[in-house]
Design a protein around this nucleic acid. Structure first.
Lengths: 197, 197, 197, 197
DNA sequence: GATGAATGAGATTTCATTCAT
DNA sequence: TATGAATGAAATCTCATTCAT
């Protein structure tokens, strides 16, 4: 039982707790999930949770930060390979939908807790920093005159929220939808309203 | 002290409770709000709440039904006066945004609790019946060939969710936005992607 | 609606409340029965109960007094017609069992509440006065040397409790017992141990 | 601070709760006793009670099972040493009375809750299994023709209930009765009616 | 006297958090 | 660091009782 094992053990516990929290918070909500349930699901003692997170709110804030960072990473995947504005938007569009469909628990978690009182302003601000790249891409497109003249906030919100709408649509009608086709359709719908010409 | 006064008194209490619940549930969530807080905010005794609603869950279900019915009514306002498909959609679009901006508490309440486990399937089904008119309008438009060929669910979801996006945008940046202009802009954005041609 | 009707109405209500209380207290116990339930069962308003009984405890004490008085009356029925000591005891024995079997609700009520904290010492003492005749009969028998020499308390308790045992036996095995035969048997059993010779 | 101490500590709390519950349930009844009172009397926190018993009803069922098991044990004490039928009955008779007088709280508890709705059918059935020995002894005596011909149920009920009557008599007149003499007397009374000849 | 809405104290139970081991 | 028994504040809901009509 060397140092390596111990450290792994430790990391394993924290991760197990985060994983359990993600699952249970998503399924039953914040107040619907007790720290005892999280501990049990994670396979640790009730006290152990508080060695890693000083309060239950701390835990959900950490989780929120992690999941949102995760999404931010996924959104940027392959973004550097795209050159045209449309291609960049399209790439983020698919990335968002792919992420949501592949990580339904994470997706639903962000849905449930994006406007929750348990997530602190601090966490929210910290998270926002990870999304400046999105603002940059859109601003660039506006400056290049690639889009009709809409307020930037409107564009960003519509893009993000509509993408989430599509994810929800897919998750709610499992199996019955052709995902790729839907991504294509929905992108055309939004892009059609956005693009100049 | 007549009959009229009595009835008013009675209605006053129930309405006060509903109003307090709307405010507090929206601000702090379901579990974050105690029935004692609701009673205090409503200016009644703790027991009085349970004379009108046998359970806390009963209360939120009633509230949900009322608020959603309210929205449904507002969406239909003046709808009969419109003849063209575009005008109908536009009318509902403005109605939705007007309602959300004029009733921010109700709007945020629906946002928080639209996919909540506290709202029963029964309530949800009951509410859905009030929205068939929306489905009918959209279907009609599709059959008349007024829109590009997208799945009906996609159209409905994008319309509704994008409208809500705009409301959120206005509520989050108070004073700084020209509401009418934003309604116009946003409608063009969505309609531009939707309409044939 | 003359005076007679009104008075009858009033008496009817009090009796209805007593009747409902007897039924419900016996079935569900004192704390298991709310005054609201009693009122509903009696067909009166919740407030009406408190026009007749100032507290719930008052009600059960009244009820106790009434039921025990009732039993006392029944025990004495035909007692004056008997001359021998054995006949007197036998008469009370049958009276007790008949009463219990014919009034199971009253019988079970006395069983449940004979040693209850809700019945006040005052009530209990008041009730005891109705049973001096029993003590007198037994004392007389002792003085006449009709029984073996046992303490009077023991005799009285055994007589009364064994009678109740028989009632319970009959009530618990409905239909399967020959009541008259059982009364005869049980009396022989007790009298056999009691009588001199 | 060793293992022994820990175990004792743990057992101590559970036992303290059981003891407090026995005392208070007996004195004030089930609904008349709050779990908070039990906890206070036991010297533990309100939550601790629910670490050991998931419900107040659970607690009283456990208690019932324990007390009745206890009595069953006591009834059988020395029973194997007796050979004649009369001696066996006499032995159980004294055992019952001794137990009741030495454990008045337990005795009164069984009196109050023997026909209580809080005790589940399951518990009751479980308890009954502990009393088959009594039925066996009586049946044996009947088959050997040691008693007059009475129904077995009558015999068993009279025996058990009359024993309890004697306990009550002793408990209600503290100090004034000669216990051993009373046991002797009362046994003669019952046995005199029961025995053949 | 009859009514029943209103009251608020009190009951059971949960659960985040602590701390001795 | 890990554990889990112990804690006690807080939550939902009940119900005896009051009182204006």
């Amino acid at each position: 039982m060397g140092c390596w094992t111990m450290e792994k053990q430790v990391h394993g516990k924290k991760e197990a707790i985060i994983g359990a929290a993600l699952k249970l918070f998503t399924e039953r909500g914040f107040y619907g999930t007790s720290t005892a349930q999280i501990s049990r699901e994670a396979g640790v003692a009730t006290g152990t949770l508080f060695n890693y997170f000083s309060t239950k709110e701390d835990l959900i804030n950490d989780l929120y930060y992690e999941v949102k960072g995760n999404l931010s990473q996924s959104l940027r995947e392959g973004l550097g390979d795209e050159s045209s504005f449309q291609a960049k938007i399209k790439r983020m569009w698919s990335n968002l939908i792919d992420w949501g469909v592949s990580n339904p628990q994470e997706f639903l978690f962000t849905e449930h807790f994006c406007s929750s009182p348990y997530i602190s302003k601090l966490t929210r601000d910290e998270v926002l920093k990870e999304y400046t790249f999105f603002r940059d891409v859109v601003r660039e497109g506006m400056e290049e005159g690639q889009m009709k003249e809409f307020p930037q906030d409107l564009i960003m919100s519509i893009l993000f929220d509509s993408g989430k709408t599509v994810v929800r649509l897919i998750l709610n009608s499992p199996g019955t939808q052709d995902k790729e086709q839907l991504i294509e359709n929905s992108f055309q719908l939004i892009w059609g309203g956005l693009a100049k010409e």
